[in-house]
């Protein structure tokens, strides 16, 4: 083939251009550490990368929510436990004060203590997390339980459950209502009866409260158990989320990140190619008959 000056120059120029372009691409990858910078670099991987990112973006919020639910449930748990202790104490009092050894003085003293126990239950039922009453159901901004001077309780909350998504498509009810326990299971009414029995020095009324205290205690335990099992579920969920996150991050990295060892080798190769192109250019431009004619 006849080689014209233009052909020679243009093909060296193209070669230099191509070698430079390859070098630039590799340098870009090396400096970002990413293999796929634009969707067009590898459309299939790009699609997977976006899917992974979508999935990953749900995990952190899900973890945060699980932790919030966890703290809500733990708070409920400890409040319920305290209520249990209160009821145990009330039962002790009822037992001791219903015996023949008790006097009107001891009963009057015990009445004062039971009033305090009553208030403790009300205070525990009105436990707050931030601005929210955790036992009020969806009626979360008013105290679920209030009492008047006569120890008559009134109830503002409901038993609606507040469901939240905690990731992986799971929904958890984070709250338990207390109205059912305190009103329908008559825990507060029983305590009120105990107070009146103690104040009226009426051993029969005092021992009558024992059954109510027992059934209240059982209901409380049941509620406590339910909360406990939810805490376990949420903790397991948190663990799953952590595993999934690691997994997804690994896969994302496989699709997205450049293999540094390979990249650096490629870079060295490309550099050699570029240098070779430069060297040939320098050699070719010196080769001309003009150089030898004088």
């Amino acid at each position: 083939m006849r080689v014209s000056q233009k052909l020679l120059m243009e093909s060296t120029y193209n070669q230099l251009n191509r070698a430079g372009e390859g070098l630039l691409k590799l340098l870009e990858q090396a400096s970002t550490g990413k293999r796929v910078l634009n969707p067009s670099d590898d459309p299939v991987s790009a699609n997977r990368i976006m899917e992974m990112k979508n999935e990953l973006s749900r995990i952190d919020p899900a973890k945060r929510k699980s932790q919030y639910v966890n703290s809500w449930l733990s708070m409920s748990e400890s409040a319920l436990q305290n209520m249990e202790e209160v009821l145990v104490r009330a039962k002790e009092i009822a037992l001791s004060q219903s015996s023949a050894t008790a006097t009107s003085q001891t009963r009057a003293g015990a009445a004062v203590e039971v009033r305090q126990l009553y208030d403790q239950i009300v205070a525990l039922a009105n436990t707050r997390l931030g601005d929210r009453y955790i036992f009020g159901g969806t009626q979360s901004l008013v105290p679920p339980v209030e009492r008047d001077d006569d120890y008559q309780a009134s109830f503002n909350g409901n038993e609606e459950s507040i469901e939240v998504g905690v990731g992986l498509g799971r929904k958890v009810a984070m709250n338990v209502g207390i109205t059912g326990l305190l009103r329908d299971n008559q825990v507060l009414d029983t305590l009120r009866g105990l107070i009146q029995g103690l104040e009226n020095n009426d051993p029969q009324a005092i021992s009558a409260s024992l059954d109510g205290l027992d059934s209240g205690y059982d209901a409380l335990l049941e509620l406590h158990g339910e909360v406990g099992s939810r805490v376990k579920a949420v903790e397991a969920n948190l663990e799953n989320l952590g595993d999934l996150q690691l997994n997804l991050e690994g896969t994302l990295s496989d699709y997205q990140d450049a293999d540094m060892a390979k990249l650096l080798t490629d870079l060295a190769n490309q550099q050699t190619a570029y240098e070779a192109a430069l060297r040939t250019t320098a050699m070719i431009t010196r080769l001309s008959l003009i150089e030898f004619l004088s």
Binding site: M1, R2, S4
Partner: peptide, 24 residues
């Protein structure tokens, strides 16, 4: 296009060595 341009350049382009020889 590059290929074709090279072909065209090969036919129609100027080769300085050739021109030097012609000059001689």
């Amino acid at each position: 296009v590059e290929q074709l341009e090279q072909q065209r350049s090969s036919t129609s382009g100027v080769n300085l060595d050739e021109e030097m020889v012609k000059l001689l």
